[in-house]
């Protein structure tokens, strides 16, 4: 085989990049375990196994080499992101179905690694929340808030068998998320101050969840420092979310939550650093990244506040994924020595 120039290269690989993303998720996961118990580790394991299994199966069906693609870690990233977006106490098959859908349909039917137009994890999430809305609300109450706290074995029993310990109801161990609660209560015309006085809201945006989000920020800084992602998407996404929330909050503080609440609740920070920055489904141009992130920020807010779903990150991501080819076409950078005419 003839070798071609350049004969030297950076030791970077896709596998290593994806591994860094997984590594960056660890602080958030650790805090998750601290506040919500080890159930999340079960869903991460389930997601990982399903992701790798589905990936291998699809590669086999598509007649592609299996080993190099399994080693690229991209399936694990998809599985983990999905596992972190859905309730950890949900029945075991929920994460399995979601992950399998993400990998088989959203990733491989569109051509596998590098070719999927939609974020696999978010498309999987959308399918789950539309198909299984009840199971998707089984969020464990954060540490110290629930009436009862399950041990690890009891959590396992519930996830796999759907059996709760005697005298414990599902309501005693689960709780609506801060975003969900806000939406319901505002609907009942409760003043926002009163809602935020509830213990679930913690210091900023939610007992437990705000700390997990902080963990994701930590991971995000790691990704920025190691140049896995650029600043464009997180900064502009969070900036837009902050700005829109700020305008509404200033205009009507009784009905619209403060911008910091929007940052630290739901999947905003996970999305800003891990989901929207997925290179495959986000624009390749700098200007494009700015537009994409701004659009996602605006849509996230609109869906959260005016839409039917408690959180908007998943749908905002998917909607902006749709616009990526157009955004990229219209934001081509000026080529060296050219005036900047569009191709």
């Amino acid at each position: 085989m003839a070798l071609f120039s350049p004969f030297v290269s950076k030791p970077d690989t896709v596998s290593r990049i994806m591994f860094k993303v997984l590594l960056a998720l660890v602080p958030g996961i650790a805090l998750y375990v601290w506040y919500y118990g080890p159930a999340i580790l079960v869903s991460l394991t389930l997601a990982s196994l399903t992701a790798l299994g589905t990936e291998a199966l699809m590669l086999k069906l598509r007649n592609r080499p299996i080993a190099p693609f399994l080693k690229d870690n991209s399936a694990l990233v998809t599985g983990w992101l999905l596992a972190l977006s859905i309730p950890s106490l949900a029945p075991w098959w929920l994460i399995v179905v979601g992950t399998a859908f993400s990998i088989a349909i959203v990733k491989h039917l569109y051509g596998g690694l590098g070719n999927n137009p939609f974020s696999p994890a978010m498309a999987g999430f959308a399918v789950l929340i539309i198909s299984f809305p009840v199971q998707m609300t089984q969020w464990i109450s954060p540490h110290g808030l629930g009436a009862v706290e399950l041990g690890f074995l009891e959590q396992l029993e519930y996830i796999f068998l759907g059996v709760l310990p005697p005298n414990v109801s599902l309501d005693a161990i689960t709780m609506a998320t801060p975003l969900d609660t806000l939406k319901t209560r505002l609907h009942l015309e409760e003043p926002i101050k009163q809602i935020f006085a509830m213990p679930i809201y913690g210091r900023l945006a939610g007992q437990g969840s705000e700390m997990v989000s902080l963990g994701f920020v930590l991971g995000g800084f790691y990704l920025l420092a190691t140049r896995v992602i650029t600043w464009h998407i997180p900064v502009v996404f969070l900036g837009t979310l902050f700005a829109v929330a700020g305008i509404f909050h200033l205009a009507d503080p009784l009905h619209y939550a403060a911008p910091l609440f929007h940052w630290f609740s739901g999947a905003a920070l996970l999305g800003a650093f891990f989901i929207l920055t997925d290179p495959v489904t986000s624009p390749t141009t700098y200007k494009g990244k700015l537009i994409y992130a701004a659009g996602a920020g605006l849509l996230t807010y609109l869906i959260r506040v005016f839409g039917n779903f408690p959180d908007g990150v998943a749908f905002a991501t998917l909607l902006m994924n749709l616009c990526v080819p157009l955004i990229v076409l219209y934001t081509q950078p000026r080529v060296f020595g050219k005036k900047g005419e569009r191709p």
Binding site: S9, V14, I17, P68, L113, G114
Partner: peptide, 15 residues
Amino acid sequence: FPPAPPALPCIRCTR
């Protein structure tokens, strides 16, 4: 000059 590992699909990382 170690031979480059087998090429994977482009992930549009923009490096």
